[in-house]
Design a protein around this nucleic acid. Sequence first.
DNA 1: CTGAAAGCGCTTACAG
DNA 2: CTGAAAGCGCTTACAG
Lengths: 336, 336
Amino acid sequence: MATIGDVAKAAGVSRSTVSYALSGKRTISDETRERIESAIRELGFTPNAGARALATSQTRVIGLLVQFFRDEFSPAMMQYVLPISDAAREAGYDILMVTEDDGPHALKRITDSDMVDGLVLLNVAHDDPRVGPLRSARQPGALVGLPRDTDGLDVFDLDFGEAARMLVDHLQGLGHREIILVSPNEHVITRGGAYVWRFRDAALERAARYGLRIYPYYGETQQPDVAEQWNQVLDARPTATAVIVHNDAMIAGLPPVLNARGVEVPRDLSVVGIFSEDFGRLFSLPYTAIETSPDKLGRAAVQALVHRMRDGEGAGAPVVRFIAPELTDRGSTSTR
Amino acid sequence: MATIGDVAKAAGVSRSTVSYALSGKRTISDETRERIESAIRELGFTPNAGARALATSQTRVIGLLVQFFRDEFSPAMMQYVLPISDAAREAGYDILMVTEDDGPHALKRITDSDMVDGLVLLNVAHDDPRVGPLRSARQPGALVGLPRDTDGLDVFDLDFGEAARMLVDHLQGLGHREIILVSPNEHVITRGGAYVWRFRDAALERAARYGLRIYPYYGETQQPDVAEQWNQVLDARPTATAVIVHNDAMIAGLPPVLNARGVEVPRDLSVVGIFSEDFGRLFSLPYTAIETSPDKLGRAAVQALVHRMRDGEGAGAPVVRFIAPELTDRGSTSTR
DNA sequence: CTGAAAGCGCTTACAG
DNA sequence: CTGAAAGCGCTTACAG
């Protein structure tokens, strides 16, 4: 492969001049510039990324730490990854995607070896073991998901509390008095998914204020458990007129259950959920829902990170940003 | 960050000795080794990846070129990405994941700048524009998906022809004489997905040999088109006793349609498909199917690539490997 | 068993 | 407007 030295020789200039022509960091005479450009073209020269990284201490790579819980229902992850990858590229960065089970170790590895300029952590848990190593790393990071201690971190998440209140308000306004609430599986809480109780507690509190009756459950994550649980719950709560579903597997598995039971939505039952538009389309879900906006979250995280990578300490105080939930009405609720 | 020079100074040896202690490429006295190791520990030293890459011409990074067709139904992509990432890590490589729309350009960018030691191309089309740039690249590549010209390439794909024959044989053996065949959407063919006609032609040919009647269709990719098309097709072919579905969106959307029509499987209709186990679980599909084995394909591609990156020209002749289809019987077919 | 030195391919003060 | 040189942090022949 041609090096900058080859280009310099072919153009009859010094290597530094070629470098400056490339970066535009100093003025070059038109004639010199043209000779350099044609030499670059003829030799098919592209700067070596490793050498450049060594000289500048910048890799132009963002580490993306994806955390998969393989026992879980997660076709949703790609909805975050793709917008992040797009946003990174638009800002001139590539993505080093790390899926190792041992997230903290992986994070330490790629930061200590200076493979990346910054990090995006996906699916951050309340007590996420990756946050410690992130704090010790030289590189800045942006989180998608809310950890217990946000001190010094850029954090992006949906406002799950507000989302829950919006759904309860919506149903209350329609006159519903008994509501089934399906949360994620209990082991998600064990794992530290604070969004579970942020949503759940807010829903319960709001319902209490209105004097509504709420029947809370932790949902299953796989078929056939999902269908079975739905039948049990619906049998057990015949007087409930609405359900709020905060569980991907449970809402994806709901249509056939209702179909089999002859339950018509919203005539017999009002259904609301919280899931992304893409997710809803994937499973043809005809339910009114809070949009989770994975694309907005992912892009916001990348933008904050890019700022911080560029401006270092000058990037200002860290932000914890909750994006406002939006309700997409698909007509799955009716007055009672 | 500590450099190898800091370690050398702390241990009272030369930088080369530290380097050799790290690589194990020459013998070091026990005493020296211990001094070096404790210096490394105390300083928290990790070699700089860029510097190492520059010195060795090896990045230990694999470029993963993912091609998304955003208008399409593709929760399936992650099933390839994850095993590839795992296999790469096991072999000591990280993954640079590229999702740019302009695949050829992205490929050229990361290979010319020497960001990667090798490439995995996902979702390779019959006339894939990335194959040309791959051939010109210094780095080796492995493909998942069969291009028109495989010369000099390591290629991995499912044997779609054999898969189709197995399904036809299966139905024929049960006595079915009229079969509906649903292929991917037509624009997939336009885009060069040769697997469409590899499967379709083989099915038609096999059926012809048996004197079976086949009703071929190109399926939709999104709801509500999917359900609508199913109803049209089933209305139009009341005498068909079996369907073969080679289309993710169509098979995921089949259960509610059959349910609504009161069609019981396999009593009223035999159903077979071709999809991965994970995909089937995701959509709770109770259908006998050819397993597409994305994990096997992804891992095989990485392994071949790792070989070629390690052994260079000595890695032997390129391989085109079709993995043998396996039928998973979920009891959705019966005798006629 | 170990060290001094050259080299990988860039960038960027320094000097003119 | 341009060049010579030092330096980024490693690895690896070469020499002893």
